[in-house]
Amino acid sequence: MRDLTPVVDRLGPETKEAMVTTAEQLRTEGRAEGQAEMLLDQLSLKFGPLPEQVVQFIRTADPARLRTMSHRVLTATVVDEVLAQ
C-alpha cells in the first residue's frame, strides 16, 4: 500500500476510507473462511466424511457461529451437537 499512498491521497479522503473499509472487510472474510476450513478439518478428523449440507452450512456461517461451533467440537460426540443452535 505504500507505493499507492500518493495516488490514494490525490483521490481524496472518501476514497481512502472506502479502500480501508474494503480491506478490513476482506480480512474479516478471510479469517472467517480460515476458521470454517479449520472447523471442517476438525469435524472430518473426529467424525469422518461430512455430508455436503454440513460443509455448506459451516462455510456460510457467520464468525460468531463459527466460534461457538469450534468450541463445541471439543466435547461433541456427534456432529449434530456441534451444529445445534
Results as ranks from 00 to 15, higher is better:
7 V>T: 05
8 V>N: 11
9 D>L: 11
9 D>V: 12
10 R>E: 15
11 L>I: 01
11 L>F: 09
12 G>P: 07
12 G>C: 10
12 G>A: 02
13 P>F: 02
15 T>E: 05
15 T>R: 07
16 K>Q: 03
17 E>V: 00
17 E>P: 00
18 A>S: 08
20 V>D: 13
20 V>S: 14
21 T>R: 10
22 T>N: 12
23 A>R: 02
23 A>P: 02
23 A>W: 00
23 A>K: 03
24 E>F: 00
24 E>K: 00
25 Q>F: 06
25 Q>L: 02
25 Q>P: 00
26 L>C: 05
26 L>I: 00
27 R>S: 14
27 R>F: 09
27 R>P: 14
27 R>L: 12
28 T>E: 09
28 T>K: 04
28 T>D: 13
28 T>C: 10
30 G>P: 01
30 G>E: 05
30 G>W: 03
31 R>M: 12
31 R>C: 13
31 R>V: 15
32 A>Q: 13
32 A>C: 15
32 A>K: 11
32 A>W: 08
32 A>R: 14
33 E>P: 15
34 G>K: 04
34 G>T: 04
34 G>D: 02
34 G>Y: 01
35 Q>C: 04
35 Q>T: 06
35 Q>F: 06
35 Q>K: 03
36 A>H: 04
36 A>K: 01
37 E>M: 03
37 E>G: 09
37 E>K: 05
37 E>A: 12
37 E>Q: 14
37 E>W: 02
38 M>W: 07
38 M>T: 14
38 M>V: 14
38 M>L: 08
39 L>F: 06
39 L>D: 15
39 L>K: 07
39 L>N: 11
40 L>Y: 06
41 D>W: 01
41 D>A: 11
42 Q>Y: 05
42 Q>D: 12
42 Q>E: 06
43 L>D: 07
43 L>Y: 07
43 L>R: 07
43 L>K: 10
44 S>Q: 14
44 S>N: 14
46 K>P: 09
47 F>I: 07
47 F>C: 08
48 G>Y: 10
48 G>M: 10
49 P>S: 14
49 P>V: 05
49 P>H: 09
49 P>F: 05
49 P>L: 07
50 L>Q: 05
